Computed example of a mutant assay.
Amino acid sequence: MSVHRSRTSGRRRLTLAGVLLAALALLLTLPGAASADGTPRTSDTPQRGSAHMGMGVVEHDGQGGTPPTGNRAVQTEGVDVSSHQGNVNWASLWSSGVKWSYVKATEGNYYKNPYFAQQYNGSYNVGMIRGAYHFATPNDSSGANQANYFVDGGGGWSRDGKTLPGVLDIEWNPYGAACYGKTQAQMVAWIREFLNTYKARTGRDAVIYTATSWWTQCTGNYAGFGATNPLWVARYNTTVGELPAGWGFYTMWQYTSTGPIVGDHNRFNGALDRVVALANG
């Protein structure tokens, strides 16, 4: 009898342990719960590494995807792509009028785009002027660390007339708090460290990709980068709207995430020779 009771008690303890583990797993998927590293998560939190340009624009900026209309100065069509697009048919994009592109190279200090070579080299081979971008996650590591990770992962630059300077993609955090848990001053300091490290490594000032509403919320609408770093602004509407402080004009404008062929579509603020000029530095 004593042996029987011992086995029964053991089974009960195992069953109780299973229930507790299942309950814990459920709690970790509830809104507001935290993952093992303390990052807030929900049941629809995307997989780390899956972030891409403009991921939060529609949700947070309240804009649709209507293409620009009406008369405007000469602009040059471009796209940006990430692993979501897989192997891209660059010939079709070129034929449609797309003349420049940016390819996601890295994210944080933990992810490299597995399609980077096909996308980066493929766009170059059809004649496009192309560059690479880094999706920043300032809560993971320092600005210097991520800038080095980006350059080492494909975000470098060469004066060949077809390579654009790297882009710091700084926007809403798809995995947690919008401003990555940083104060406005801390965010500005992080961005500055990234930009300074990138320039030290490549000799070029990186482009800053952001949305005006995020920039205002998370940097306090800081105006100190406009004199040195080209602006790539995200706003999905018929007009670009208000720009972040410090910039009197935009260099690139991401106007929709629903391109007619593939990727997010953008307008360079000038004719193709201005794209070449940015590439040459």
Rank of each mutant, 00 (worst) to 15 (best):
R5Y: 15
R5L: 12
R12K: 12
T15Y: 08
G18F: 14
A23S: 12
A25W: 14
L28E: 08
T29K: 09
T29L: 13
G32V: 09
D37S: 14
G38N: 10
P40L: 07
P40S: 12
T45V: 07
Q47N: 09
R48T: 09
G49D: 04
G54F: 03
V58E: 15
G62T: 04
G65W: 02
G65Y: 05
P67A: 04
P67F: 02
P68T: 06
T69S: 15
Q75D: 08
D80T: 01
N87D: 15
N87C: 05
V88M: 14
N89S: 12
G97C: 07
G108V: 11
K112N: 07
Q119I: 11
Q119K: 14
G122T: 02
S123F: 03
Y124S: 06
Y124A: 05
Q146S: 03
Y149V: 01
D152R: 12
T163K: 00
L164A: 11
G166K: 00
Y175G: 00
M187E: 09
M187L: 06
W190Y: 07
Y198T: 09
Y198F: 10
R204V: 01
Y209S: 05
T216Q: 13
T216G: 13
C218D: 05
C218Q: 09
Y222Q: 11
Y236Q: 08
V240L: 03
V240T: 08
P244R: 00
A245P: 01
W247P: 00
G248S: 15
T251V: 10
Q254W: 04
G259K: 01
V262R: 03
N266H: 13
F268K: 05
N269C: 09
